Computed example of a mutant assay.
Amino acid sequence: MPQQDNLSGSNSAGSDLSVFFLSGIPGLEAMHLWISIPFFSVFTVALLGNSILLYAIKTEPSLHKPMYYFLAMLAVIDLVVSTTIMPKSLSIFWFNSREISFTACLVQMFFLHSFLCMESGVLVAMAFDRYVAICNPLRYATILTSSVIAEIGLVALTRAVLLVVPLPFLLRRLPFCQSHIISHCFCEHMALVKLACADTRFNNIYGIIVTLIILELDMMFITLSYVKILRNVLRVASKEEQLKAFGTCVSHLCAILIFYTPMVLFAIIYRFGHQVAPHIHILMANFYLLFPPMMNSVVYGVKTKQIRIRVHLLFRGKRF
């Protein structure tokens, strides 16, 4: 097949460290065009959904509250994650454009991992927001001021950058003396580490540490917030008030499940599923990265009345 010939040629030219080649989905090259259809559809929904979400939050005064400021951060992160990986992936599927410079590869990897880390931090902040709203409603406006929200966003960004910025430097020190073909649709840390012809234990350990910080530490804080919320809500005598309190958490709980469930499954399969075919790994990785950006906008758009009204008016071409 021509695609295989291209990859063989790129492999023989692999002595140039500045150039790498993305394989797309190994074993399914003949189906790339068909695979691109659901990928492009999900990408389009993610772009439109999150852009509309940001528009609704910006233009609807009743949404100028801490919870929706955090949601706006989440929407921006989802847009960045989607646009970081999908244009290059689609260019592979549509035009067989596999070549990527080593620098561009590291930049893509940095943006991808840092914004995923930041998304986890924002979900923790949203859990704290729900805790304050339900457990300390009278102090909600004084605790979560605009300056505090900005500081929380800055802390999430700083943490993400500090955790991820060592990865490109750790990769730069490694020699890539054999294949320069990355078995993936995009540049991902472990996919690059596998190509190095040197001791990569430190890279592996650091990657595991970052994953554990995101998964275990952040999920611990989220769980702690919801344990306190549950304890507080169950003290309320009225069933109606209990349901109302839980109702304010439904969208955030969905966002947590949408983000962390695929991450946990992918991490388990990636580390222990050695018998799983490579194309399954790659398809799951793309699903993990594309599904949350699409679903977050859908969930919050459906669950939030003010957003639904604003979107309805947008499509009807009316304004307040």
Rank of each mutant, 00 (worst) to 15 (best):
V42L: 12
T59V: 14
N50S: 02
L257D: 05
I143T: 14
D78I: 00
H113K: 12
I229W: 03
C249I: 12
E151L: 15
I282L: 08
C105K: 00
L138G: 11
G317T: 07
I152K: 04
V124P: 06
I85A: 06
M294L: 12
L74V: 12
I282N: 12
V236Y: 01
I35W: 02
H281A: 00
V45I: 15
I214V: 12
S297F: 02
F111C: 12
A13P: 05
L290D: 05
P168F: 03
R308I: 09
M219N: 15
Q275N: 08
A196L: 02
V81H: 00
M109K: 02
R159M: 13
L154W: 06
Y288F: 15
R173A: 05
V124W: 03
I37Q: 02
I269T: 03
G24M: 07
A267R: 06
F246G: 09
V264I: 15
E99D: 07
I205E: 09
S62D: 14
V233Y: 00
E29P: 01
I77F: 11
K88Y: 07
L314Q: 03
F266D: 09
Y69G: 06
G207R: 08
V227H: 08
F169M: 11
S120D: 04
P168G: 05
S91L: 12
L174Q: 13
S146Y: 11
D78R: 00
L112P: 03
G153P: 00
V155A: 04
S179V: 02
L79M: 09
F111L: 13
A267Y: 08
A56P: 04
L48V: 13
V264R: 04
L53H: 01
P166W: 01
L257E: 05
A237M: 10
F93N: 07
A160H: 01
A104N: 08
G14P: 07
R319L: 12
R308Q: 12
Y140N: 04
S18A: 09
V210I: 15
I100Y: 10
V124T: 07
G49Y: 01
S12H: 12
T261A: 14
V45A: 10
E151H: 08
T142F: 11
A104S: 13
T158N: 04
G9L: 08
Y270H: 15
D218Q: 09
N136E: 13
F246E: 14
M109Y: 09
F39H: 13
I309C: 07
L7E: 13
M284F: 11
I52K: 04
F95P: 00
P2Q: 13
P293S: 04
M220F: 15
V264M: 14
T223L: 14
A277V: 08
Y140P: 04
G24A: 06
P278H: 09
L314M: 11
A191H: 01
V302G: 00
F39N: 10
S23N: 10
Y288K: 11
K65D: 12
P26R: 02
D78C: 14
P168S: 05
I52Q: 10
L79T: 05
T103G: 10
P175W: 09
A277W: 06
Y140C: 03
I222C: 08
V148N: 01
I256D: 04
V264D: 05
S51V: 15
L106W: 03
D5W: 15
I229E: 01
F186N: 05
A255C: 13
R98G: 03
S120N: 06
T200G: 04
F40D: 05
N203E: 14
V302H: 04
S179L: 02
A125F: 15
Y270I: 04
L171D: 06
V276Y: 08
L167V: 14
F246W: 15
